[in-house]
């Protein structure tokens, strides 16, 4: 299988505090891959490093064949169009309506006609399970669950190959959370996405993830499928996965 993301020996240091000390992981094409670990272990930091929001201090991260520590401006811009990122609270642009939020990348990066853009936006809105009538609402007028769906539609606007999700189900009620899980599975099936997510939601982890990496004590303590995970004797894994299987 072709690996989309390759991290080798990644080190991160904040104010003399070591966050990651030699992280290695491979994420393959078409996978739903989870980054798990106790809070404060640096899952979100690692995700932010992958999407070039934060620098790392050693090792290398390779995404879709681009080395992040030696990437040029134009190459970085090109790479940014090949992924979508969903932030924890959605991070929709509050000055734009949902339609404009989703259309923004299309307007800026392509020379599609207004009619074509409208059609794409409508398709994406329906794909994530929002109604077309919601399109003219502003982010402050909609609920948390809708915000996440709209942000997902925005992340999918450019038809990315890679999707990064930061705690996609946090703050949602259990029913919406399960809906979101099945939405993610459906999207993977329909669009052949590769999805990387940080999550705490055990139900969502068991339902959606193909493989996981568990970060504890600055290192990856487990990488692989969820099948035999409870046999691992790491303290966090034992605590977290006690009930399943």
């Amino acid at each position: 299988m072709k690996s989309f993301i390759k991290a080798r020996d990644v080190k991160t240091i904040f104010n003399e505090k070591v966050i990651h000390d030699g992280i290695n992981l491979d994420i393959n094409k078409g996978e739903i891959y989870g980054l798990l670990g106790p809070s404060g272990c640096g899952k979100t930091t690692l995700l932010r490093e992958m999407v070039m929001l934060q620098d790392f201090h050693g090792g290398s991260i390779n995404i879709l064949g681009h080395e992040l520590d030696a990437i040029g401006h134009n190459e970085a811009q090109k790479l940014r169009r090949e992924w979508g990122v969903l932030f924890q609270a959605g991070a929709l642009f509050s000055s734009l309506s949902l339609r404009d939020n989703i259309a923004l990348s299309l307007v800026e990066y392509t020379n599609l006609s207004q009619k074509m853009i409208d059609e794409i936006v409508e398709f994406k809105i329906n794909l994530v399970g929002l109604k077309s009538s919601d399109a003219s609402l502003f982010p402050s007028q909609i609920s948390g669950g809708m915000k996440k769906k709209a942000a997902l539609a925005r992340a999918l606007a450019m038809d990315p190959k890679l999707l990064f999700l930061d705690e996609p189900t946090s703050g949602l009620d259990p029913i919406s959370a399960r809906d979101f899980d099945s939405l993610i599975l459906k999207l993977r099936e329909l669009l052949g996405l590769t999805i990387v997510m940080v999550s705490h939601d055990l139900a969502s982890i068991c339902d959606t993830l193909d493989r996981v990496a568990i970060i504890d004590e600055k290192k990856i303590v487990y990488e692989g499928s969820l099948n035999n995970i409870e046999n691992n004797n790491n303290k966090f894994i034992q605590m977290f996965f006690k009930g399943i299987s």
Binding site: L53, A89, Y109, F164
Partner: peptide, 10 residues
Amino acid sequence: QELDAMRTMG
């Protein structure tokens, strides 16, 4: 996180 969202969108 709107600024982060902008950056990741290029």
